[in-house]
Design a protein around this nucleic acid. Structure first.
Lengths: 144, 144
DNA sequence: TTTATTTCGGACTTTTTTGTCCGCTTTAAA
DNA sequence: TTTAAAGCGGACAAAAAAGTCCGAAATAAA
């Protein structure tokens, strides 16, 4: 469904969000440990997220990553997915056709529309904040 | 969503089904042309489908591929997807966790359950026959 | 001001997926 | 019975995705 990079990106952003809620800055190693991901690869992904303005970074001693809490209610999963995987998942044809719409549909076009709409809706409605509000005791897992 | 191989597999099977309905046997080149896919790669995929008993093949001059029409009402897309991609798409965690269920969920577990159930339902309800019945004039496209 | 710690950026490697090539076997038709 | 046309199977090649390495830049603390 998502690329590995995108899965890590979502999990990392949720974790950084959790920690930012506690006013804690976290560095690369901590993030990779918290979400059980390869350190260097995670570094690359966080770099992209910084460039896209999804997370904040500070270099140097006691540097690390945070999220601007004043924007977490706007920070949707869709933004993260778009930043890493682009919008092909919920936009492009499920059977791989270059052109596929109501006028020139693939055999599963209507079926896929329903499913992709659901996915896109979920991604655009779910914010980092909502995840932390709905799970105040962190009753979910970001690794294993 | 699906691998390229799986996309080709679905399109190829639908095409072979169409032709079998007209009592026509089709060879590799025709299939690849009809669904606009790389010939040799498509050959490999059709090989797998034959092994799985999803399509039939006959070797030699005027050989090619068909589908046993007496079974097309049982031939679901799920079977094709399972044969090529396995069942990770609708079974495994959307955020890539090895263990993820109601007891130890990832943050999006419930959201993903809904979507994957929809996908699985669609794949298990849609048969090759139903596609040909619902689109008697082939008002859909398998290429471009 | 130096130093240790951190992110950044680019080059590189490994693994997986996608795709090709070619000789072998099978088989219908000439 | 020969032959040409098909699928089969295994080795190989290319491209994309996943992941590593390392030196440079930044910066807080000593």
């Amino acid at each position: 469904m998502f690329s590995k990079a995108c899965e890590y990106a979502i999990r990392a952003t949720i974790y950084i969000g959790q920690q930012s809620n506690k006013n804690a800055k976290v560095n690369l190693k901590e993030v990779a440990q918290a979400i059980e991901s390869p350190v260097a690869f995670t570094g690359k992904i966080l770099q992209s997220l910084v460039k896209e303005g999804i997370i904040l970074s500070t270099k140097g001693v006691s540097g690390g990553y945070t999220i601007d809490l004043s924007t977490t209610d706007n920070l949707t999963l869709l933004r993260i997915v778009k930043a890493i995987d682009g919008d092909t998942i919920y936009n492009s044809c499920g059977l791989g056709l270059d052109y596929c719409d109501e006028n020139e549909p693939c055999p599963l076009h209507n079926e896929f529309v329903v499913i992709r709409k659901k996915l896109q809706h979920m991604l655009s409605e779910t914010t980092i904040e909502s995840l932390n509000l709905n799970f105040p005791n962190n009753t979910y897992f970001l690794k294993r």
